[in-house]
């Protein structure tokens, strides 16, 4: 499902060269829940954006859902992303001028028909947001915002969900709820990759990696979670 081969990403700044990712190689199979732990600045977001086709690596190969991403044009990468990858971000990134329901629908690549509206409404209900469906993001709590973002990622039933610090702005209760939703998605056959600075994703993950100074190392494999 996801293959990274010797991926490097170097940034050039006024302070000199910074290695965001260094010789990163791993494979994630379909239906896995993988957690990547790392301190702030360790390269977690760089890894996730690289896997999402939004940050070209300096070298190496990235294959997601059968597509070797960086051999595709930007438009083709956009299409692959629109159809097969769901994103969840720490800062939610909801569209401020859309309602909760419309934000969830914004995740769909094509036109929105009545079936899609019904599915979105059902998802909003499943995520406990029915009463907030017509509200704007500004009026939501952090937990509600992240659940909205999660519903948006799940609605199109992507092959992979990439979550970047999805619980970084949430209290423990809401954080646990987010991981439960991600785990439920994985149990329905989806692939999930979560990067966090803490260990709170580990109990839900089948495998856990640690990222430090751009280098990735596998910590353990959890047969129970798998």
């Amino acid at each position: 499902m996801i293959t990274c081969e010797q991926v490097n990403r170097t940034f050039h700044g006024p302070g000199g060269e910074v290695r965001g990712l260094s010789e990163v190689s791993f494979t994630v199979a379909r239906g896995e829940f993988v957690a990547v732990q790392g301190a702030s600045g360790s390269g977690k977001s760089t890894l996730l954006l690289t896997l999402g086709g939004m940050l070209r690596p300096s070298s190496g190969r990235v294959v997601v859902n059968g597509h070797e991403f960086y051999r595709l044009s930007a438009a083709e990468r956009g299409r692959v992303r629109a159809e097969g990858i769901g994103f969840v971000f720490q800062l939610f990134h909801l569209v401020p001028y859309l309602t909760v329901l419309d934000n969830v629908l914004a995740g769909l690549p094509g036109s929105v028909d009545s079936t899609a509206r019904k599915r979105a409404a059902a998802l909003v209900d499943e995520f406990g947001l029915s009463a907030r469906a017509a509200h704007s993001p500004a009026t939501l709590s952090a937990g509600e915002r992240q659940r909205t973002a999660l519903a948006r990622a799940i609605l199109k039933q992507p092959a992979v969900i990439l979550a970047d610090e999805p619980t970084g702005s949430l209290d423990p209760e809401n954080a646990a709820a987010v991981f439960r939703h991600l785990a439920a998605y994985q149990q329905r056959g989806g692939t999930v990759m979560v990067v966090t600075h803490g260990q709170d994703a580990a109990p839900f993950a089948s495998r856990t990696f640690r990222l430090a100074q751009g280098q990735l190392a596998e910590l353990n494999a959890s047969p129970t979670a798998r």
Partner: peptide, 14 residues
């Protein structure tokens, strides 16, 4: 800026 980034992440074209 963040919204533009989000639309990109959601696969919207140029």
């Amino acid at each position: 800026r963040a919204e533009i980034g989000l639309w990109r992440a959601l696969g919207r074209s140029s």
